[in-house]
Simulated assay, not measured.
Amino acid sequence: MKWHNPDILLWLIALLPLMLVTGLMLRGRIRRLQKMADRGLWPTLLPLLSPRRLRTKNFLRIAALALLIAALARPQWGFKWEEVKQRGLSIIVALDTSKSMLAQDIKPDRLQQAKWGVRDLVSELRGDRIGIVAFAGDAFLQCPATIDYAAFLMMLDDIYAGIVPLGGTDLFQALETSIDSFEKSEEAQSDKVIILISDGESTTGDPLALLPRLKEESIRVFAIGVGTKEGELIQTSEGFVKDPDGNVVKSSLDEKLLERIAFETGGFYVRSAPGDFGLERVYQQGIAQLQREDRESRMSKSWTERFQWLVGAALVILILESLIRPVKWRSKA
């Protein structure tokens, strides 16, 4: 047996104080009744009162809540072996983490929208390797190309504006680091794709100098332009970003460079928009059309979900709880 989301089980600890509080509330109710009348008079004054039924109903509610929490943790037991084929496509997401990505012309900001878009892209992949390069004025490989999507998403969540200490935006370093990362991956001979996500404002380096190398190694670049042509001020926790002269900096989308890089390498360019970041189009119209070759296969355990049993048990308990009256039935005699 295993749990798909074991961290959710920690919420069961919160039920202990809940049980204590509700128990004390019921006890307080009984004590107030004892002050009003001696317990021996209750059968006469309060013939329908049933403290035991009240305690039972409270216990059943908490038990049902515990089962629902356990169901959210997705218990799994029983499995079957399935053959999983490794596909020969490697993807590197080069993600701009410069301060300009904090501009809020795309809510909540450009970088967060980009991260959500990449997360949606991962859900479309079926055995393709994916890695990520974070860049600003420099670049580094945050996660090598891998089929461990859970690990990739963890590394994606760790990215923030400023993770690269050197300021500015260097698309040359972003592409060069991405190209070099393919040579370190296990699928060195597989088809290769770079998804370049940026607002296009390259402040240093000349990414066009890498076009011959990209073509030679048959690496396609699909570019996503993040932001609007009108632009937006860049707001950080320390206030608005200013240039050396003290003027407030306004960041706007520069598409020309991104369009050329994508076009020259056989990819295409997409401008992001609210509600449509563009990565779905990149996958459906670009990446999904690439030829893939099955290179190897492995056996993988496919666990059977069992959360339905816990949900069903919780519903049964809630039905039983609703059938228990908080007071005794009145005799018709």
Rank of each mutant, 00 (worst) to 15 (best):
L211K: 11
I194E: 02
G205P: 09
S202T: 11
E201H: 14
G137W: 04
D158I: 12
E183Q: 11
A134R: 10
G167N: 10
L214V: 09
T169C: 07
D191F: 03
P165K: 02
A209Q: 13
I130Q: 00
R129D: 00
R126C: 00
P144K: 00
A161M: 10
S178E: 06
I130N: 01
A209P: 01
D191Y: 09
L196C: 09
Q189A: 15
G127P: 00
S190P: 09
Q189M: 14
E216C: 08
A174C: 01
L153Y: 04
G127K: 02
I197G: 01
S198G: 07
D128N: 10
A136D: 11
T169G: 05
D191N: 15
I130R: 09
Q189C: 00
G131R: 01
Y160T: 08
I179A: 07
S178G: 13
R126K: 15
P144L: 00
F140E: 02
A139C: 07
L214H: 02
Y160R: 12
G167Y: 03
Q173I: 02
V133C: 06
L125A: 09
A209L: 12
P207W: 03
T204S: 14
I163C: 14
F182G: 04
L166Q: 15
S190F: 11
P165Y: 08
V164N: 02
Y160G: 00
T203L: 11
D206I: 03
D191I: 05
P165Q: 05
E176K: 14
L208D: 12
V133W: 00
P207D: 03
D170H: 00
P144H: 00
L196K: 08
M155F: 15
L175I: 03
I179Q: 05
A136W: 08
L125C: 04
L125F: 07
D138S: 13
A151N: 13
P212Y: 05
D199R: 11
F135S: 04
Q173H: 11
R213N: 11
A174E: 04
D138R: 13
V193P: 08
F152M: 05
Q142T: 13
F172R: 05
I163W: 10
R126S: 14
I130M: 06
F152L: 09
A174N: 00
C143M: 09
I132L: 15
E176D: 14
I147S: 01
A151L: 12
G205L: 04
D138G: 12
I197K: 08
T177E: 07
D191W: 04
Y149K: 06
C143K: 07
P165G: 08
D170W: 01
G137T: 05
D170E: 00
D199Y: 13
I179H: 10
I147C: 02
D128M: 12
A136P: 12
A188Q: 15
G205I: 03
E216A: 15
Q189Y: 14
G162R: 07
G131V: 06
L171I: 13
K215S: 12
G167C: 07
L166Y: 13
P207E: 06
I194D: 08
D180T: 12
F172Q: 09
S202W: 10
